[in-house]
Design a binder for these strands. Structure first.
Length: 320
RNA sequence: GCCGCGGUAGCUCAGUGGUAGAGCACUGGUCUGAAAAACCAGGUGUCGUUGGUUCGAUCCCAACCCGCGGCA
């Protein structure tokens, strides 16, 4: 008799909400492997700054893997900080890893805070042309001269419907809309299916949203920032010494700009900690807004510290 | 004790004789290959306290309280 196949579990939540610990607990209980949905932990050398779980690369029966407490932890620690990464690439790699995990008969546990990656993986993306560096460079140069308004005006000329949906200040999305329209040869607003943001496919797996009471999360974020600050500073200093530019993709991420300010003497240590904590909380708010849209996810609210019991939460998820 | 400066949003502060504003914080939201990104919306208030002048005081006057600096 074949054992019942365990459907993938997807664990979502803001940074510092304890996803990793619960994912490890689930992996131990189910004999599972973890698949990280985190846009920054994919980078090598970014450890303290991304709260990447400590692990080691080792040869296993299934090939080389990053092991955290002996649990395979996929899609982390494998990209140079100078490289870019994106949702499309993530989906492609994650599908492959997911298939391999299932092929081994193991439970897959996706854990992460990058809502867009989770969204793209489970709900898919419309068939849009991938990023084009030449066009982006050209558009960035145009924005340099004419400002964000000039770019938005260009979008309005080629696709009024898209221009209405995207505010001029949001230069990244304006550029992307122009890019798609040019590459596809027709207005992006006609290509968008408009059905991208809905619920998650609950029949394909379990979806869990860990939501902390704000002040408690702020306390956790602050404590984590203070605790790892020196290690983070050393790691960042080391990267600069190796020749990584301050504006490389890996370093253009939450907290690193403030850390670079600190290393350059533009911020004192308390100021840097305050700025990093503030940025992390602003990010947590966005994450909670994103995940809150999934009404069919299992919502686990944490209102007091005692509510955070990884083993109990893991059991609750398994029994849900 | 005296002199000076200050007391306005959670914080730092601007401002006006017609009940007030910015930045940050906070709250809600957007999101289709940069997403730890890039944005949109919302002002949340006993203007230190009590009196006085005035049609009207957060603003002018007095006293008091508190903080900072100086002189004793």
């Amino acid at each position: 008799m074949e054992p019942e196949k365990i459907k993938p579990i997807t664990l979502m939540g803001a940074n510092a909400s304890g996803k990793t610990e619960i994912a490890l607990e689930l992996a131990r209980k189910l004999g599972g492997e973890i698949l990280s949905a985190d846009s920054k932990q994919t980078y090598k050398y970014l450890e303290a700054g991304t709260a990447k779980p400590a692990g080691v690369w080792a040869d296993t029966a299934a090939g080389r893997a990053y092991l955290v407490e002996n649990v395979p932890y996929h899609l982390v620690d494998n990209l140079d900080p100078r490289s870019t990464y994106d949702a499309g690439t993530f989906v492609k790699e994650a599908k492959k890893v997911m298939a391999e995990i299932e092929g081994r008969g193991n439970a897959a546990i996706m854990a992460g805070g990058t809502g867009m990656y989770i969204q793209a993986f489970w709900n898919g993306m419309d068939d849009l042309p991938p990023a084009n560096p030449e066009i982006r460079q050209e558009l960035a140069a145009l924005a340099e001269v004419g400002g964000k308004e000039a770019l938005h005006a260009q979008l309005a000329a080629m696709d009024p419907a898209a221009a209405v949906k995207i505010p001029p200040g949001n230069i990244q999305r304006v550029m992307r809309a122009i890019e798609i329209t040019r590459l596809a040869g027709r207005p992006v607003s006609q290509i968008w299916s408009g059905r991208f943001y809905n619920a998650l496919p609950a029949h394909e797996g379990k979806f869990v949203f860990l939501k902390w009471q704000r002040d408690l999360l702020a306390e956790r974020v602050k404590r984590r920032t203070v605790t790892r600050f020196e290690e983070w500073a050393a790691e960042t200093r080391n990267l600069l010494a190796k020749g990584y530019p301050e504006d490389c993709p890996g370093l253009k991420t939450l907290g690193y700009p403030q850390m670079l300010d600190y290393l350059a003497g533009r911020l004192s240590k308390p100021e840097a900690i305050h700025a990093i904590t503030g940025a992390s909380m602003a990010y947590a708010k966005r994450q909670n807004t994103w995940f809150g849209r999934y009404r069919n996810a299992l919502l686990i609210t944490l209102e007091k510290y005692e509510d955070y019991d990884p083993a109990a939460i893991a059991a609750k998820i398994i029994n849900a």
